[in-house]
Simulated scan of single mutants.
Amino acid sequence: MSSSPLPACSIVFLTWRDQQHPDGGGSEVYVESVARELAARGHHVQVRCARHPGSAAREVVDGVEIVRRGGRLTVYVRSLGWALTAGRRTDVVVDVINGLPFMARLARRRGLVALVHHVHREQWHIIYPGWRGRLGWWIESRLTPAVYRDVVHVTVSDSSRRDLVALGVDPSLIHVAHNGLDPRPAAPASPSPHRISVLARLVPHKQIDHAFHVVRELQDDVPDIALDVIGDGWWRDELVEAARSAGVEGRVVFHGRVSAERRDELLASSAVMLLPSVKEGWGLAVMEAAAQGTPSIAYRSAGGVTESVVHHETGLLVDSLDDLVEATAMLLADDAGRQRMSACARRRAQQFTWPATASVVEQVISLVRDQSP
């Protein structure tokens, strides 16, 4: 058990999904990695989230109690009901706001932390065009800041911090705790000079079809170019069709959800990873690729990637789809430059750890613990 400057307390994370959920991604990795570290320091930590097919209603993973109640939307109702009743005996509640809050603020005046990875302006309108997207963005941009105006916030990047300030959150209430990374050795694979990869959930706002466009544009000049798509999600069938429509289905391999070991092998065998996402709070995939010595290319407008990618050192930041094609072609052709970025990326990845992330979150928890009801 690790020592902790904070006396043992009960901490509950209210979050939409857990890592085992079919749609789980970087947000869930963050929550459970921090929860695991806090549990190792002697705290009683619980994660409350939605159930999914085949999941247990309750289990303990790495010292963290996982409680699953409700479905995609009813998890919010069930969690608020818990917060209004049994949850009042918990020292600190962390409300993980992925677009929609759990409204735990209605149940607690104190002992509450809001955890926000990034704002979802673009995602709301991509996934829910029309009135539903407008309603979702109104809740996130107007209602939530009003309800949580005096709540201490944690976010994962300075970019997300600026976005929260723009929504009206008091800057003095926002603390940045960057994503960590599990210490893993570099996989034994050797990078193929013309193989690229994408590591992401298969959802529309990750814009994985942009990687298909890159392959199509470069296939004449790079005849053996290939793309590994690592991850799964509800948009998979549409992406398979998009690859077929782009005429690159023979060059794209959909690996689905794989083990950490297999993920590392695929990343290590890639010359470069593309992250053409609309928005990222940080870009955990960037650091997972960096740990394997694989530089990344991402859109500068995505926000948090401007901090996870060090431009021209651990990867490249671009401004358009045409730039993405050009940057990919440049890195595939520049063996020396790619090797230099590879070494820089690996060194930088070693600077980010989950214990360090958990220490920041623990400090925030210590600020609000004495206020708990």
Rank of each mutant, 00 (worst) to 15 (best):
S4V: 02
I11L: 12
F13L: 12
W16L: 14
Y30P: 03
L38I: 05
H43N: 07
R51L: 01
R51K: 10
G54C: 05
A56R: 15
D62H: 10
D62Y: 00
G63I: 05
V64N: 01
V64C: 01
E65V: 10
V67G: 01
R72E: 12
Y76R: 11
A83F: 03
D95A: 11
D95W: 01
N98I: 03
G99S: 11
F102M: 14
A114V: 05
H120I: 01
E122A: 15
I126V: 14
Y128A: 14
G130R: 06
L135S: 05
S141V: 00
R142N: 05
V152K: 12
V156Q: 06
S157T: 07
S157V: 07
D163W: 04
D163Q: 15
L164E: 08
G168K: 09
V169F: 13
V169M: 13
P171V: 07
S172W: 05
P185M: 11
A186Q: 13
P188C: 12
P188S: 13
A189S: 15
S197H: 06
L199N: 04
A200I: 01
I208R: 08
V214L: 11
L218Q: 06
Q219S: 11
P223C: 04
G231I: 04
D232K: 03
D232L: 00
E238W: 04
A243T: 03
R244T: 08
G250V: 00
H255L: 08
H255R: 13
G256V: 03
S259Y: 11
S259A: 09
V272K: 05
V272H: 08
M287P: 00
E288S: 06
A291Y: 03
S296R: 03
G304K: 09
D319I: 03
M330T: 15
D335F: 04
A336D: 14
A336P: 04
S342A: 14
A343E: 15
R348Q: 11
F352R: 07
W354I: 07
P355T: 04
A358Y: 02
V364I: 09
D370R: 15
